[in-house]
């Protein structure tokens, strides 16, 4: 066992253990404040009360994509530098990302029912999210199917790389296939297209809240994975002696 394999998780456990209470507190505070503030915003003149769904839908959608990007970076770090914590963090992030994608899809469908008149439209953005969800499911399934932990980390890392390319490719292929109903980016930087400040600030806050929530869950889940790995190592050592 090299020094990296042993020292890094220990250091991670110490740092993350110290960070965890603060992260959890900040996540709870921002999530609750952002969503409650969003809930108390006045009705939109066009969408009525359904505008309140925005404060769940947009942060979840943002995290769904960003968590995949984080998994890609973590997988690359594992494949290149062989930091075990990195591979475990990618593994720990995947279910969170899948749930975020599911929330974005569910809130989108519920919002679309009165607005577009149907629960599901094969709109490019919705379709891309469905595809992203499929990639998350495949990734998680591969992690649970491979027994040897290092092989599992390698294979899922390669899958994450290939999957990223194809998720992006699908995004543009789907645009070619069907032009959609979905409105453009909610937080456009072009002046004149921005949503008014009463919606924007609570949205920023709930986005921050969702990010902190992901961070807290990621820390806990990675700690779980490290503990499981250590447990397996201890059992293996006992079997040898």
């Amino acid at each position: 066992m090299s020094i990296w394999e042993y020292a890094n998780p220990v250091k991670f456990m110490r740092v993350s253990g110290a960070m965890l209470p603060w992260t959890v507190a900040a996540a709870v505070l921002c999530c609750v404040a952002g969503v409650v503030w969003g809930f108390l915003t006045p009705l939109d003149y066009k969408q009525g009360a359904t505008v309140k769904i925005l404060f769940l839908h947009v942060p979840a959608a943002m995290m769904a994509i960003n968590i995949w990007v984080m998994m890609l970076v973590a997988s690359l770090i594992w494949l290149i530098r062989r930091h075990h914590v990195s591979a475990l963090a990618a593994k720990a992030a995947a279910p969170v990302g899948a749930v975020m994608t599911l929330i974005a899809l569910a809130t989108g469908a519920i919002w679309g029912q009165p607005m577009w008149g149907s629960w599901w439209e094969w709109d490019p953005r919705l379709t891309s999210f469905l595809i992203l969800f499929l990639f998350y499911v495949g990734y998680i399934a591969l992690w649970s199917a491979v027994e040897d932990p290092d092989s599992a980390a390698d294979l899922t890392g390669v899958l994450c790389l290939v999957g990223s390319v194809f998720a992006l490719l699908s995004r543009y292929a789907v645009l070619f296939w069907n032009q959609g109903l979905h409105q453009g980016a909610s937080l456009s930087v072009a002046p004149g297209e921005r949503m008014s400040a009463i919606y924007r600030y609570p949205l920023y806050l709930s986005m921050l809240g969702f990010f902190l929530l992901f961070l807290a869950l990621l820390l806990i889940r990675t700690r779980t994975e490290i503990r499981k790995r250590r447990l397996a190592a201890l059992i293996a050592r006992e079997m040898r002696t």
């Binding site: 595809i131 499929l134 990639f135 499911v137 495949g138 399934a141 591969l142 899958l159 290939v162 999957g163 194809f166 490719l169 699908s170 292929a173 789907v174």
Partner: peptide, 10 residues
Amino acid sequence: SLLVLPLYIP
């Protein structure tokens, strides 16, 4: 099939 079919979408 779970891994490959999403790759076939484009």
